[in-house]
Amino acid sequence: MREAIVAGGLACRIGQCLLGLLLLGPAASPVQAEETAAGTKRLTFLDHESNPLQRATAEILTSAYERMSIEVVVEFFPLRRSAAVVNAGQYDGELFRVAGAEKKFPNLRMVPTPLGENDFAAFAVRAEVKPTSWASLQPLRVGAQLGVMQVEKRTQGMNVVFEPTLDSAFKLLKLGQVDVVVASRMTACEHLVRLRGSDAGYAGIREVGVLESVPIYHYLNANHADLIPRLDEELKRLTSNGYIAAVWRKASISGRCER
């Protein structure tokens, strides 16, 4: 069962209606749990774009919820605002975040079993730029995407330029306006492969090291807290039978910087 995207009343499969998503933008009206024509429950979760992390977590959650007779729908929404609208009850949950989102957004409930790990990596052009930890970024000009909570937390007090998209952060790096870009490794690599295909100027950008590996978790609005015990059991089952590991092995192929 593949996840669908719904935007402004248009339903489609991931990768088949990105243009429609861009034209329609985020849905203006609240999206809450609803029943399908078959009588099953449908939940709508948010993420900001199609990338290896999004596709892997959507596949895992689709399998887990399917055993609970719940259909999963994924809608793309600006990263900076997604947690806030889920917190307000306008959507059913977030596909994934790192632990701690509930401290800032009290109506979010974290499902305890992790979906996997997110590697945060540094990317640079100059050979002498080789950060090995968050602290080693201190003397550098850093570029990053706005709304990535872990990056915002780890780079507090540093010289950081936050851009609305990862592509625009990489453009700053290409132009020499920042020394390094920090981002989710698999997501950044997929962006880089695409950018290199259309502009040779990105060929010099390389991954220079993983700064941190962080578990990622599924979040639900508090209205769906009753689903967490059963969902957590399903995620534990998918962990123990090797399904989740297999999904991440597949995702790691599309998340390579060199192809």
Rank of each mutant, 00 (worst) to 15 (best):
M1D: 11
M1S: 11
E3T: 13
E3D: 14
G8C: 12
A11S: 14
A11I: 07
R13I: 11
I14P: 07
L19K: 15
L21P: 03
A28Y: 09
S29I: 11
A33I: 09
E35M: 12
G39Y: 04
T40S: 12
L46G: 02
A56S: 09
L61T: 11
L61E: 08
A64G: 07
E66V: 10
R67W: 00
F76S: 06
R80D: 09
A83K: 15
N87E: 03
G89P: 01
Q90V: 11
Y91L: 05
E94H: 04
K103C: 03
K103D: 14
N107L: 02
M110Y: 01
V125R: 14
S133R: 05
L146Q: 14
V148S: 01
V151G: 03
N159Y: 06
F162G: 00
T165W: 02
S168D: 09
K174N: 01
Q177G: 06
D179A: 08
C189G: 05
A203L: 12
R206P: 07
R206C: 05
G209Q: 04
V210L: 02
P215L: 10
L220S: 02
E233P: 02
E233N: 12
E234H: 02
N241Q: 09
V247G: 04
R249M: 00
R249Q: 12
K250L: 08
S254M: 10
E258D: 15
